[in-house]
């Protein structure tokens, strides 16, 4: 079913190379790599959840290196101010004027580490940037250089002193990707790579080659946006999202933004599969990462330790696939 059009063939090939390069630094966990690449191609942002020490920073740095983009990292803390994210105006005594000092958000890839440790005001400042793709400082709007993507991380274990993101703000993330411990063989590769004649335990991205440019990413995004989506596929995506609103185990279902996210991400999945059209399989593949942060489980299921993934998995088994 692979159909490579001559127009996007080169870009698809570059995307494939980028995945391979990222995987050289970030060993194993191909689903996590795919999730990040899908979000990058779809022009969305990713919420990455996993315990500390699994290489989240390395992943984002490797991706930035693979497409030659700029990379910034903000460690969110309770005393972080919105101006620490977006930038601020500084008075210059020489020129006797205020000068705009740009914050770390002016980059291509922004790693917002432990986003739930900053208060709501600072979170909102970043989420506004994510939504608008521009920053307003002292009334002056500055657009961000495309491609811009935020990878925000959350620690699922430590909740003391955190400010959980409200559902409305979680909705801004295209995907929520779960990062788990590496497999046994992958961990051996990681340990070998880190301890092979090096001092310290830092992972680096020296081995990652730049195979794309930011301009290529922008072009790939246009290619993804032009991917054909049949009406029956849209209908399938909408039926899945609507089912989340009616399912008995879900307290709050996904909104229309969930349907839109499904289609956007499915188009990227299709491009990565070498197709210029999306299929119901693409929707199904990306449904759980695109919806798991947009639903809230009923209290009785939360008490029984069910996860959104369990409920969404069951839900996908009840929605009939298009056949006409």
């Amino acid at each position: 079913m692979n159909e490579t059009s001559s127009e996007g063939g080169q870009l698809r090939e570059l995307v494939g190379q980028m995945r391979s390069e990222i995987s050289r630094a970030f060993v194993g966990q191909q689903e996590v790599v795919d999730g990040i690449v899908i979000a990058l191609l779809s022009g969305g942002h990713v919420l990455l959840e996993g315990v500390p020490g699994l290489g989240k920073t390395l992943l984002v740095k490797a991706m930035a290196e693979a497409f030659g983009g700029k990379f910034s990292r903000i460690q969110f803390t309770p005393d972080l101010m919105p101006s620490d994210v977006s930038g601020h105006a500084v008075y210059d005594p020489k020129s006797e004027r205020f000068r705009i000092r740009r914050g770390p958000v002016f980059t291509h890839l922004l790693l917002a580490d432990e986003i739930n440790r900053a208060p709501a005001k600072t979170q909102a400042a970043l989420l506004e940037v994510m939504q608008e793709n521009q920053v307003t400082i002292e009334g002056q709007s500055s657009p961000l250089d495309p491609p811009f993507m935020t990878v925000a991380t959350q620690n699922p274990v430590e909740h003391e002193g955190t400010y959980p993101l409200p559902e409305a703000q979680l909705d801004r993330f295209l995907l929520k990707v779960l990062i788990d411990y590496p497999a046994h063989d992958d961990e051996i590769k990681i340990v070998t790579a880190v301890t092979g004649g090096r001092v310290g335990d830092a992972l680096d991205v020296e081995g990652v080659q730049t195979v794309m440019s930011p301009a290529h990413v922008v072009a790939a995004r246009k290619l993804v946006a032009g991917t054909r989506v049949d009406a029956s596929v849209v209908d399938y995506a909408v039926r899945i999202v609507r089912e989340t609103r009616e399912a008995s185990g879900i307290r709050m279902g996904a909104g229309p933004r969930g349907s839109i996210a499904l289609i956007r991400a499915a188009r990227a999945v299709a491009v990565m599969a070498g197709r210029d059209f999306a299929t119901p399989d693409d929707i199904r593949k990306i449904a759980i990462p695109a919806l798991r942060h947009r639903i809230a489980l009923a209290p009785e299921l939360e008490i029984e330790a069910y996860r959104p993934d369990d409920i969404l998995g069951d839900l996908l088994n009840t929605v009939s696939a298009p056949r006409q």
Partner: peptide, 9 residues
């Protein structure tokens, strides 16, 4: 085959 099976499924 479940009713939810897509073409790939």
């Amino acid at each position: 085959l479940p009713v939810s099976a897509t073409e790939g499924g």
